[in-house]
Design a protein around this nucleic acid. Structure first.
Length: 591
RNA sequence: CGGGGUGUAGCUUAGCCUGGUAGAGCGCCUGGUUUGGGACCAGGAGGUCGCGAGUUCGAAUCUCGCCGCCCCGACCA
């Protein structure tokens, strides 16, 4: 039982100016966190308690799924990362430090990075300690602080530079085992989010810089989320926009036949799809080829899309470059012979085709039998271009961005889109890290194999905010039972009356006996202040004890999530409180 | 990193355009009256106006530079 008057819950009547979204405002107003700098937060006692609830639930579910908890350093020798497969992509977001501490590290002094995740630490550990198939599979996890020098921290804990994450790493002898580990984690995640009391849906996801073969994200649907989820209710399809596909392009697409002789024509000043669509050219965007130039690991390559489609940049990850970016005009001209707006991939028109690392085309362009594209000559385009005859495509792939309304691959029904907050991500990694770090084991035939890995993360601090985003009203937070900082709040309206305090402590004791944690608001504040604060901090069950109630012989019992107040006769109060707590706890643990 | 915005007391902010002794609300302290949904009265403390240059007799206000923070984009748990 904690007395509010001797605790630290600095609530705010007004929202701080730098908070934009509801959950961020409430984090601050309810006294859960305070900002130190961009993306850096102090967890105040109430916020810390919620974090402890989340970590404990997470730990229980990981342990139940066979996870083994450990704790790894968060300062890593930079050499470890330089050996790893994702250094080129990861280095930008990593905090770096030198042992001299003054930013002027002598060449022979060690340099360190702060860990954004721990594949580079856990894989060498397992390489050293596990060498036999008898010791596989294993799944190691930790719940700890992570550091990422986010380009743009935002929305409080939603994208922070320093945050708390559960990260797990599974090691299996073979692919089947890795799939089993992956499924076990997916199930554990689903139990975790259900117990926490937040709706999080698993969606197919892109593997990003992690690489690996498949992946799911756990998304909390919310307007303020960073990600677009493309889904269809009926078929159950749900994918991150970066990964999503539609049935717009038939799988067994026949290449369209050539039509007519290729012909160059003058298009002075036309540098956009829209301008070529307009009179006098009148070429529909669906019949134009859009040619984009990217730089992958230092070499230019082309991406060809239909004029009506947008590139989904993340899908270029499938091409295997460790880093890629759009080329600049200065880089484009020497290779192509023209500026953006007049580019094309017709054989023989590219000035320096040998410089290209490849020409990659979206499947959808095969629908174009007779298209128009840039001539690689400023102010000119080419018509009657045929994909097979005229374009030297290295490889077709899925590179286009799916738009809402396009047909679902599974059901043909229109796809929908909604925003979501990514609170968890699971990857089947494969052998990429194991091979790089030499994490091998010997099988029962004395053969050596790389271990097959998976990695898994839950953003604990982000989940706290996602819960608030999903569970609040105009007055404040409405905590789900299992992650509430306290489950029961006793508001003592007349704390100067000894009998009121005595009753509050008696009822608090009954709640504790039933398994709840209890906060007593014994402050010398007016009732209005206490009720407002109670609504703001969102404790699930509120008991109100006051002189008036004592005279009437009642206490009040109110759920934060409901409007009604029940008046309970004093004689029944203890029993009713205990019953309410047991009931809520049982409902909160429905799994 | 590109674009937009903002910085005045612990918090929310007015004042800036049109230069002339820095104002309010909340919170805090003292006293009193109140006491079931953010009370009232009286008194009080608290500000190098983000930092640095410049213009000017005079700068919160105009100019330039820097920094912090917020929002949009690429990235992520």
């Amino acid at each position: 039982m904690k007395l509010w008057s001797q605790f630290f819950i600095p609530t705010l009547k007004e929202s701080p100016a730098d908070a934009e979204i509801a959950s961020h405002k409430l984090l601050i107003r309810a006294g859960l966190v305070r900002k130190l700098g961009g993306g850096l937060y102090t967890y105040l006692p109430l916020g810390l308690r919620v974090m402890q609830k989340l970590t404990q639930i997470c730990r229980e579910e990981m342990d139940a799924a066979g996870g083994i908890e450990l704790w790894m350093p968060h300062v890593h020798p930079v050499e470890l990362w330089q050996q790893g497969p994702r250094w080129p992509a990861a280095r930008e977001i990593m905090f770096r430090a030198d042992s001299a501490g003054d930013g002027r590290r002598p060449p022979r002094e060690p340099e360190f990075v702060l860990g954004p995740t721990h594949e580079e630490v856990v894989t060498p550990l397992v390489k050293a300690e596990i060498t036999s198939y008898r010791d596989l599979p294993r799944n190691f996890y930790q719940i700890a602080t992570k550091f990422r020098n986010e380009i743009r921290p935002r929305f409080g804990l939603m994208r922070a530079r320093e945050f708390v994450m559960m990260d797990a790493y599974s090691f299996d002898a073979d692919d089947d085992g890795a799939v089993r580990s992956y499924r076990a984690m997916k199930a554990a995640y689903e139990r975790f989010f259900r117990r926490v009391g937040v709706q999080a849906i698993a969606v197919e996801a892109d593997t990003g810089v992690m690489g690996g073969s498949f992946s799911h994200e756990f998304m909390v649907p919310a307007e303020v989320g960073d990600d677009d989820v493309i889904y269809n209710e009926a078929s159950g399809y749900a994918a991150n926009r970066e990964k999503a596909t539609s049935a717009l392009v038939p799988a067994d697409l026949a290449d369209a036949p050539p039509a007519g002789e290729r012909e160059e024509f003058a298009t002075p000043g036309v540098v956009t799809i829209a301008a070529l669509e307009a009179a006098p050219y009148s070429v529909p965007a669906t019949r134009q080829f859009k040619t984009l130039v990217y730089i992958g690991d230092g070499r230019p390559f082309l991406v060809i899309l239909r004029g009506s489609d947008e590139l989904e940049e993340a899908k270029l990850g499938a091409l295997g470059f460790s880093v890629y970016r759009p080329a600049t005009t200065e880089e484009i001209e020497p290779v192509m012979g023209a500026k953006p707006g007049s580019l094309g991939a017709v054989r023989g028109t590219i000035r320096n085709p040998d410089a290209l690392a490849g020409i990659f085309a979206d499947h959808a362009i095969r629908l174009i039998g007779n298209g128009t594209t840039g001539a690689n000559k400023d102010g000119f385009h080419v018509r009657n271009v045929n994909v097979v005859r005229d374009l030297g495509v290295t490889r077709f792939g899925d590179f286009r961005r799916v738009q809402p309304g396009e047909p679902d691959v599974k059901s043909g029904q229109p796809l929908q889109v909604r925003r979501g907050i990514e609170v968890g991500h699971i990857f089947k990694l494969g052998t990429k890290y194991a091979e790089r770090f030499g994490a091998m084991y010997t099988d029962d035939q004395k053969q050596s194999h790389p271990m097959v890995m998976g990695c898994y993360g839950i953003g604990i601090s982000r989940t706290m905010q996602a819960v608030i985003e999903q569970s609040h009203d105009a007055d404040g937070i409405v905590w789900p039972w299992n992650c509430a900082p306290y489950q029961v709040l006793v508001c003592v309206l007349d704390p100067q009356l000894p009998e009121a305090m005595a009753l509050a402590k008696k009822l608090g004791g009954a709640a504790e006996q039933a398994g709840a944690e209890v906060l007593i608001d014994d402050r010398a504040e007016r009732p209005g202040v206490k009720f407002k604060d109670a609504d703001l901090i969102g404790i699930p069950l509120r008991l109100t004890v006051g002189g008036k109630g004592l005279r009437e012989g009642i206490v009040e019992l109110k759920w934060r999530s409901a409007k009604e107040v029940s008046k309970v006769p004093l004689a029944e109060a203890e029993a009713r409180v205990g019953a309410a707590v047991r009931e809520a706890a049982a409902a909160g643990k429905k799994d």
